[in-house]
Design a protein around this nucleic acid. Sequence first.
RNA 1: CGCGGGGUAGAGCAGCCAGGUAGCUCGUCGGGCUCAUAACCCGGAGGUCGCACGUUCGAAUCGUGCCCCCGCAA
Length: 307
Amino acid sequence: MKLIFAGTPVFSVKSLEAIFRAGYEIDAVLTMPDKPQGRKQTLLPSPVKEAALRLGLPVLQPVRLREELSALADRGADLMVTCAYGQILTREVLELFPLGVWNVHASLLPAYRGAAPIARAILDGCSETGITIMKTDVGLDTGDIFLQERIPILRSDTCGSLSERLSASGAKLIVEALGKISRGEEILRAQGEGTKCGKVVRTAVDFSRSAREVSALIRALSPAPLAYAVCDGREYNLFFAEETEGSGACGEILAASRREGGLIVACGEGAVQITELQPAGGKRMSAADFLNGNKLQKGMRFDQPVL
RNA sequence: CGCGGGGUAGAGCAGCCAGGUAGCUCGUCGGGCUCAUAACCCGGAGGUCGCACGUUCGAAUCGUGCCCCCGCAA
C-alpha cells in the first residue's frame, strides 16, 4: 500500500511520523509552499516539510493541487492521508486514489467542520472535543466517519496544549485506520447535520464579558493568533488567564502584585488572573516576572474595545 | 526604505531628555523570627550598562556606525 501524506502545520507532524514509523510506504509528502514569515519576510518551510525532509521523504508543494493532477497521478499511490493540509480537494483529486482519501480532523464531527476546530471548541467552553478520521468527500469535512476518539478539554488548556494531545490522538488513530483499511475492515457511518467553524483571528479582550468567557477567549487564541488588551496606551498579548474571585469595573486591575495574588482583572462577571503575557515590544513572560517591572498598577484599567 | 518598542546583575524593570558613587522588584546565598511558610526581618554575592569609534577632566547618559531581540502590519 503506497500512500501520499498531505499536511502543513505542527499539528500534522505527529501523524506523518507515526505513519512513517508504522512502516507504511510514503511515496511523497504534500505541503503548502514556503511562506514569507515575520518582519524580515524570510521564506520558511512548513513544519511538515521539515519533518518530511528529516525522514528523507520527497516533498511536493503545489500552489494549487488541482493544477498538478497529472504529477500526482503519475506517482500511482493507493491512498492519501490529509491532516490540516490547507487546500480543498476537488473530485478529480479524490478520484486518483483507489483506496480513498482519509482525513484527520481535530473535532468530533459533525461538530466543528472547518478551519479552527480546536480554538472554537475552547472558545465555546466545551468540556470535550476529539479526533475524527473520516473518508474525504467533496464537501468541507462532511465525509463519512471512520474512527473517533474523545479528548477532554481541561480548564488549563490553551489551543496549543490541547492541540498537542489531539495531534497525538490523531497520529494514533490514523495508524489504526490504515491498518484496518489495509485489511479491508473499514466501517463507515454518515455524519448527518453538522456545524461549521471559521478560522479565528487576533481579538481584543472585552472585559465586560464574564470571566469564563474572557478566560476561554484568551486560552482559545493562545499561543496564536492571541487575544490582547490595551492599558495606558500599551498593548499586551495575553497567553493565559484563569477565572478567579473578584469584582470591579470591567477591565479594572484589582491586583498587580504577588502578595495580592498576581495580576487580576475585573470582568463583567467575576475576574481573571492573567498568568502569562507579552507587552508590545517585549518578550513573552510570566505575570510574576512582568509584575516585577511595575508597569501596571492596581486601579488602572484596560481599555474597552470599540465594537 | 511598511509602523513601532527594546538591549543596564540569573529574571522583570528604572536611571538617559538637563553627563559626575550602578538603583528598584524578584530570585539566589547566609543569618534571624516562627509550630510552620511561598510570609516577615537582617546581611552578602552577583553588572564588559549590546559592540566599536568619537566628544569630554569624566559617558549607561551626548554624537556616528554596526550587531541583536521583540510587538503590529503584510
